[in-house]
Amino acid sequence: MIRPATAEDLDAIAALHRAARATYYRDRLPEDAYDGPSELARSRAAWATAVAEGRVLCAVRDGEIAGVAAHGVRDGVAHLGQLHVAPAHWRRGVGTELHRACVDAWRAGGVTTVRLDVYEHNTRAQAFYAAHGWEVDPDVPRASTHLVLRLTLAPSEEWDAARPR
């Protein structure tokens, strides 16, 4: 089930985010950069803001949060800020369901183009996004250690016929 996040979900969201990030940053960045006290506090505050603004969706499995996605508008452009699945739920359709829910929300809001940043060494995420139609943004292909990807949303009829199920 996909549902909007609530303030009561914040601990679970922060823990899931922490676990997911560790899988692709470990051995590539200093631990304090992704798992230090100041970074965890900053991350939790950002999630709290996004939840309060209604920009976070949760995937729930067996009563627990198995995945989370944050989306919104940054600098006038629709953006997928975060999409994380608990490692125990990888390859079970959780990410695809969250992605579909975000796409449906964007389409309902009239969005035609979305961007995201993905860590250059996170090849699992890059493959996921490529399978869902994301491409390297030709206008801004990189932002520091991240690739910038762009998704162009098809008209409703085309999306319904082609979307992953």
Results as ranks from 00 to 15, higher is better:
residue 3 R to C: 05
residue 6 T to K: 04
residue 7 A to N: 12
residue 7 A to Y: 03
residue 7 A to M: 04
residue 11 D to Y: 11
residue 14 A to F: 07
residue 17 H to S: 12
residue 24 Y to C: 04
residue 26 R to F: 14
residue 30 P to N: 06
residue 31 E to H: 05
residue 32 D to T: 09
residue 33 A to V: 09
residue 34 Y to C: 05
residue 36 G to S: 09
residue 37 P to L: 08
residue 37 P to M: 07
residue 38 S to T: 13
residue 39 E to G: 05
residue 40 L to G: 05
residue 41 A to S: 10
residue 42 R to A: 10
residue 44 R to G: 01
residue 47 W to T: 00
residue 52 A to I: 15
residue 53 E to A: 14
residue 55 R to V: 05
residue 59 A to G: 09
residue 60 V to M: 10
residue 61 R to I: 14
residue 62 D to F: 05
residue 63 G to I: 13
residue 64 E to Q: 10
residue 64 E to S: 10
residue 68 V to Q: 00
residue 69 A to M: 03
residue 78 A to Q: 02
residue 79 H to W: 09
residue 79 H to Q: 09
residue 82 Q to C: 08
residue 89 H to A: 12
residue 89 H to G: 03
residue 90 W to P: 02
residue 91 R to E: 15
residue 92 R to T: 10
residue 94 V to S: 00
residue 102 C to L: 11
residue 103 V to G: 03
residue 104 D to S: 14
residue 104 D to H: 05
residue 111 V to Y: 02
residue 117 D to I: 04
residue 125 A to L: 03
residue 131 A to E: 11
residue 136 V to P: 00
residue 137 D to G: 09
residue 141 P to V: 00
residue 143 A to P: 01
residue 144 S to C: 12
residue 146 H to N: 11
residue 149 L to N: 02
residue 150 R to D: 10
residue 151 L to W: 03
residue 152 T to A: 15
residue 152 T to L: 13
residue 153 L to K: 09
residue 155 P to A: 12
residue 157 E to D: 13
residue 157 E to L: 13
residue 158 E to I: 08
residue 160 D to A: 15
residue 162 A to Q: 12
